[in-house]
Design a protein around this nucleic acid. Sequence first.
RNA 1: GGCCCCGUAGCUCAGUGGAUAGAGCAACAGCCUUCUAAGCUGUGGGUCACACGUUCGAAUCGUGUCGGGGUCACCA
Length: 596
Amino acid sequence: MSFTTTIQFAAIESLEELYGRQFSEKDFQVNETKVEFEGDYTVVLFSLLKPLKESPENLGKKLGDLLIKKHANLFSNYNIIKGFLNLSLSDDSLLNLLKENYNDVCFGKNPLNHKKVMVEYSSPNTNKPLHLGHLRNIFIGWSVSEILKANGNEVYKSSIVNDRGIHICKSMIAWQEFANNATPQSTNTKGDHFVGNYYVKFNDEYKKEVKEIVDEGKPEAEAEKEAPIMKKTQQMLLDWENGKPEVIELWNKMNGWVYKGFDETYKRLGTDFDQTFYESKTYILGKEFVKKGLEDGSFYKKEDGSAWIDLSDVGLDEKLLLRGDGTSVYITQDIGLVKQKFEEYQLDESIYVIGDEQIYHMKVLKEICRKLGMPFADKIFHLSYGMVELTTGKMKSREGTVVDADELIDEMVETSKKHTEELGKVKDFTKEELKQLYEILGLGAMKFYLLRVDPKKRMVFNPEESIDFHGFTGPFIQYTYARIKSILRKVGGPIGSMVNGQWSINKLLPLERQLIIFLEKYSNVISQAAEELNPSVIANYVFHLAKTFNSFYVEHSVTNAESEEKKLLRLQISMMTATVIKSAMQLLGIKVPERM
RNA sequence: GGCCCCGUAGCUCAGUGGAUAGAGCAACAGCCUUCUAAGCUGUGGGUCACACGUUCGAAUCGUGUCGGGGUCACCA
């Protein structure tokens, strides 16, 4: 049980003894004591004054005295300022905590709760490479999954690949028309970029054709429909749906190139999925489902044969489920996938990491499920995150202002190389070790930069700031870890044999106390991050921890401590800090180096 | 226009009912013969968009106003 909870319960118990009244956790707060006051935790008395008809001084004194009497091992003393009862934890309670946990790699994680959760993220289109927006999505999805695991859930990571539709046919047509059978291999291009280039090529060509037709005097709307390349593309989509062998073959070939490219990027990012769904399969499930719904009267048809559901009673609108020609729309495949997910995995919750521009869409999906009496409708959760903007405004693929994921990774890794070489601390590393270190640092900087902000909020990507390795950054925390490891290497040998000695330290120094108390909070931090589905909670915590350790580090020597006992104490504090840093960074998907 | 989100230091962000609102970056001033200076210490910087209300207490809750964004497709 955490200190906060322990104190809360102790106070409830003492209040009952003093006043014969039952209070709950909601009736008063236990907070951390502000640094400018003496004490570690504070019981806020204001809300208790009226029900108990007491003055702050009296209540504080009575409660403080009793708490200390009953929990002599936990508290050392207290003070009252206004309505705040500030309690100081005893050295013993802190030392015990340290002794029991300093070497526990699982510290802070919660036991299994047998809840099954699926987290869907990344969900790319197979017509262009991943960009900065995907990176935020992927990092959030992966991190939230790990956080949920740490909180005791059984988590499945999944991805839905948008591998069909008119946009996919566009790159296929462009390749057919202009590539002369070129391949990623023949051009030495990464597969996803290779295909993406043909998607761009399509748009260029399309624009050209539209302009020609407009120049002949036709209105733009008509020209857009008539452009030959667009007509070919629409025909290709029909051929695809009808399973025309050449088209399917081309589709398989080009998607294969893209997947190979994605896999490379995913691997480099250290991300993975337990299950990949394909829209080319789920849209069929969705269609069948709509057909059934039409038969049993859940949905209705309009004159042109299109299928609809009426959601106007829940403040939404009539929603189209299938077009008149029987082809599916965006929501169709989502309905198919929802069913499949819950039936196949028996989920307790299904989390969708999708941008906040799709809030309305996800609401519609949920309402449709609810309307159809699907039992899992309320277990759908849209983890919506804000768009990543550039300092110059929004990213727009049309204007070529999209930040490419692979390029960005390369840049970050290159920057870490530059910094490392300038500092010259790892000259004895082998080539392979250096390469690994650059990846760890570059990716660490990038992941931390994108995860340190609350997912719900829009964020601005500042290229200069993102490659900064000082302050509130991944490398700062990695550096703190490497520093600790350096101390531990210097001491050498197993610390375990030294820890069994008796403690006779009777005065923990402020920074020693601060660190132990802060380390203790880790479990609460994981719970909070899991509850809010918010990795930035972890990022802020681990930064603050590293910061505190660095102050401790310059203030107090570990290896040359005043006494053997102090040395031991500080070694344990250092070890536990390293363990928690490593663990917290792992929840963010960031590795920590032994040296840097 | 309807609905949703956001507005905190020059910039990027924490803080979501408690004490004198915090970090990082940027600026300025210090600290390496001592465990890694990717570090540490200090200084300056605020009408928490605005108004009213609820409360012993509001950046935090409510209502309204202003400003920014998203969305309301037989696009995905």
